[in-house]
């Protein structure tokens, strides 16, 4: 049984008289532990697919089974729990709390997971250190550079040890060295059996994955499996 099984997933947006078809029927199986890259031109529906996979959005038609459970059958609380415990989401637009510092932003998923204060702070600090931001714990998003914000978003996604990491252009704002470090973190997680799904425009980022899916106009255009992915440099600090 695949970890993720989607069938004929569609998602369209009605804009007045016009309908935008973001996904036109996507079917896909993803096994546990896979490292997958999603590529495609701008506007092809990558983020839309990620939102569906992350249990944030609901499709107009088609089915999505996560771990054998039909997501459509889950109630709001169950979905919240899945988002909190199973999925680490790195948003394309970071989505950090503007009024909170990095530490609190990273700590937040643990708050909703009911983790004790000391453990929360401990784990949030470690997650920030893992992305090289130990010195920026008490900066707010508007006091950070774009790349630093992106790394806070990555730290927040990884802090809860999610079994599935969904990263929408996680290295888009990073120089190649920092980007490689983030990818190294993903690789480490992947080696430990976690499932990684990364959206990217950059061919060299996709090369880290073992499988590349290309999307065009809301449809899967190609699905390649590579025998040997490129390895990333060792991360700054090992994951705790």
């Amino acid at each position: 049984m695949p970890l993720i099984r989607i069938r004929d997933l569609t998602r369209h947006y009605v804009m007045g008289s016009e309908t935008v078809h973001a996904l036109r029927g996507v079917s896909l199986d993803i096994e546990k532990g896979e490292y997958l890259a999603i590529m495609g031109p701008s506007g092809s529906g990558k983020s839309t697919l990620m939102n569906l996979l992350g249990c944030l959005d609901t499709p107009n038609s088609g089915t999505y089974e996560l771990n054998g459970t039909n997501v459509a059958d889950m109630d709001d609380n169950a979905l919240a729990e899945v988002r909190n415990r199973e999925i680490g989401f790195v948003f394309q637009s970071f989505n950090l709390l503007a009024r909170s510092d990095s530490l609190h932003n990273v700590e937040l998923p643990l708050v909703y997971a009911g983790v004790s204060m000391e453990e929360r702070l401990e784990r949030a600090r470690q997650a920030l250190a893992n992305v090289g931001l130990a010195e920026r714990m008490h900066h707010r998003p508007n006091e950070l550079s774009g790349g630093q914000r992106q790394r806070v978003a990555v730290a927040r996604a990884l802090v809860n040890n999610p079994s599935i990491v969904l990263a929408d252009e996680p290295t888009g704002n990073l120089d190649s060295r920092t980007g490689e470090e983030i990818l190294g973190l993903f690789e480490q997680l992947s080696r430990r059996g976690n499932t990684i799904i990364v959206v990217t425009h950059e061919e060299h980022v996709a090369q880290h994955a073992r499988r590349i899916i290309r999307i065009r106009d809301g449809l899967i255009a190609a699905d390649e499996i590579k025998p040997r992915p490129r390895s990333a440099v060792v991360p700054i600090a090992p994951i705790a």
Binding site: N77, A80, E81, N84, F89, F91, N95, Y112
Partner: peptide
Amino acid sequence: TREIGIRRAIGAKKRN
């Protein structure tokens, strides 16, 4: 609204 969306996205329940 955005803050609420973020909280919901990372696992806050309606109750929270």
